[in-house]
Design a protein around this nucleic acid. Structure first.
Lengths: 171, 171
DNA sequence: AGCTCAATGTGATATTATAACAAATCGAGA
DNA sequence: TCTCGATTTGTTATAATATCACATTGAGCT
């Protein structure tokens, strides 16, 4: 661990997926923010939903719906696809998880609540997924769209490549 | 038709999907560029491949692999998924078609050969798909990635929203 | 013609996702 | 506290997307 839980500068940094960090803190932090948000909105953080979020938070990776489902089933929740998809869809709608379209998979949002519009960096070697700050990217996309009279309502921006560690390892 | 085929300024414009244009010229132009490129690279533009490209070129839309397959089958080509997927994969590798991940579908490249890195604008009302100039978008993504030490090898940038016509119609 | 390799055809199957409906649970108000 | 209505979950079934493996065909070369 690079730092103690109560001095976690990291969690406000653009992204941690590729850096050594106190991941336990990532998790509890994201989870408690999530709980707060859901309550604020008058919605329910049910056991399945919480558990799915916890599972996604375990690693800076994307998990397929069926991977999540497998975990849920092993813990006594329903073992049919809709169980996983419903929870994942809920989390996504609430901005607590993101869908990585390139992988047909889902990843926990590491910055819930902070209005954000992430770009995702997907390492092809270790499968880590990082949320990168994407304001400039969105802005550029927005203006390219405007030039054609197109109004953007949602977007997905994903990059496949290699994270710093895997680059070093490969060199 | 907005203009004659031999005075087509449009085809060099950033994008035409949302504008009235001589689409026949789009098609023949993209197809002949494609043929030339493939030949240049010592590869083969076989009947299935050419036909798939033609089908994609019919409209500024994305077609699912199974939609393409259906067309192929009706014309006497094989009617098993690999027939469509192989041709689509080939076209994608050669930069003659793009995969729209948000739609699990494919669209013809309207600027083959021109080194380009498009962003896609997908109209949720009429399903038109436009390739927007994305140099600035890529640059922003690139620099966001670099900040984290991540090397980008491929990326997909897609926006969902409404095209000018559909906005007007909805207003 | 005969060889070789790429491309295609085909059957089977894997993976991802949704529809439809029943049962359980929760919370608000009588 | 009880009941109503709405939300959530469980379950069956099936749809939609994608790949594997292997046989066959066909083009290009000698």
């Amino acid at each position: 661990m690079a730092q103690s839980a109560d001095l976690c500068l990291g969690c406000s940094a653009p992204d941690l997926a590729f850096a050594v960090h106190d991941h336990g803190h990532c998790q509890t932090d994201a989870l408690s923010r999530a709980e707060a948000l859901i309550a604020q909105r008058g919605l329910r953080m049910t056991p399945v939903r919480r558990r799915v979020l916890e599972i996604l938070l375990e690693q800076h990776r994307a998990l397929g719906a069926y991977d999540v489902l497998e975990r849920l089933a092993a813990e006594g929740f329903g073992n049919q696809p809709p169980v996983a998809y419903r929870a994942l869809d809920f989390l996504e709608e609430q901005g607590l998880a993101h869908r990585i379209r390139r992988l047909n998979a889902f990843t926990a949002c590491m910055h819930p609540g902070e209005a954000h519009a992430p770009a995702f960096l997907i390492c092809r070697s270790c499968n880590a997924v990082a949320e990168a700050a994407a304001q400039p990217v969105r802005a550029a996309l927005q203006s390219a769209a405007e030039a054609l009279g197109f109004s953007v309502e949602a977007s997905n921006i994903e990059a496949l490549g290699q994270c710093p560690d895997c680059q070093r390892r490969a060199a």
